[in-house]
Computed example of a mutant assay.
Amino acid sequence: MKVGFIGTGSMGSLLIDAFIASGALQPEELYASNRTLGKLAQLVERHPGLHVCDSNIETATTCDLLFLCVKPLQFKKLTDEIRAYMNPHQIVVSITSPVQIYHLEKTLPCKIAKMIPSITHRVESGTCLCMYGDRIKEEDRKLLEHLLSSISKPIEIKESHARITSDFSSCGPAFLSFFLEQWIDAAVKITGTPRQELTCMASEMLLGTGMLLTQGGFSPKQLQGRVAVPGGITAEALALLNHSLSGVFEQLINTTHAKYEEDLHKCDELFSEAP
């Protein structure tokens, strides 16, 4: 199978690195094009045998499975560029949340899927959110999820739930890292404990907490109850967090949804234009 990537920026290159590191794909099976030739050169240096295509059209015509890893507002220009060279047997996967399946099915003649990946795939972990267009058949779904299962836990969702689920699977690592960073900054300032030492402890704690929630049989509420002894230090601190963070997560969700709706509106306008 020939697998192509149009766009090898942060997430496109991460997926390529992860697929190769997991053994799911060999460099010789991969084809890539990108506006910045330096990024392609870096990929080939890391993965000798990977094919660099001279244009997006070459990538599109060569591959059976094509990942589109460009920014939302670049999609219309890209699909207009490659549409005449695509065929109904190919599978195109968008990894961009605001670009809708109906945008791509209206524009391209091939099978359409949408996957929202996560930086956690770099360590073959985390969930990959999967959505499928009407032309995708069962064998296509199995092929995609088999490939994705090498670097993640694929979960099929409704496209209407893409934004809120992305908050957890895709944005979540940044949110949790921000929380840890603020916590570590405060601890260094107040106690003088070495930052590297605290960062190591916090990271191992986060890893262990994830395992307790996924493999240890705990829900978030149960885990809090197990750690927090009534009247103890943890319970006192949880009470503070409960008070201080009241309404914060509602605001977070409203913020991510507002940006999503803004980008979706722009994509609707772009895809309503004639090619």
Results as ranks from 00 to 15, higher is better:
T165F: 15
S166W: 01
S169P: 05
S169K: 00
S170Q: 07
S170K: 07
P173W: 01
P173E: 02
A174T: 06
F175C: 07
L176D: 09
S177P: 10
F178M: 09
F178H: 07
W183P: 02
D185E: 03
D185Y: 00
I190C: 04
T193P: 04
R195W: 04
Q196H: 11
Q196R: 12
Q196I: 05
E197G: 01
C200D: 14
A202Q: 06
A202K: 03
E204T: 06
M205A: 14
L206H: 02
L207T: 11
G208K: 03
G208S: 03
G210S: 05
M211F: 05
M211P: 05
L213R: 08
Q215L: 07
G216F: 09
G216N: 14
G217R: 02
F218A: 06
S219G: 09
K221S: 07
G225D: 15
V227G: 10
A228H: 09
V229A: 15
P230Q: 11
G231E: 04
G231N: 03
I233W: 11
A235R: 04
A235C: 09
L238H: 01
A239V: 14
L240S: 05
N242W: 00
N242P: 02
N242H: 02
L245M: 08
S246A: 15
G247M: 00
F249E: 08
L252Y: 10
L252R: 04
I253Q: 02
I253Y: 00
N254F: 00
T255K: 04
T256R: 11
T256F: 10
H257R: 08
H257E: 13
K259P: 00
Y260A: 07
E261F: 14
D263C: 15
D263H: 15
L270P: 12
L270H: 12
F271C: 09
S272L: 05
E273G: 03
E273I: 00
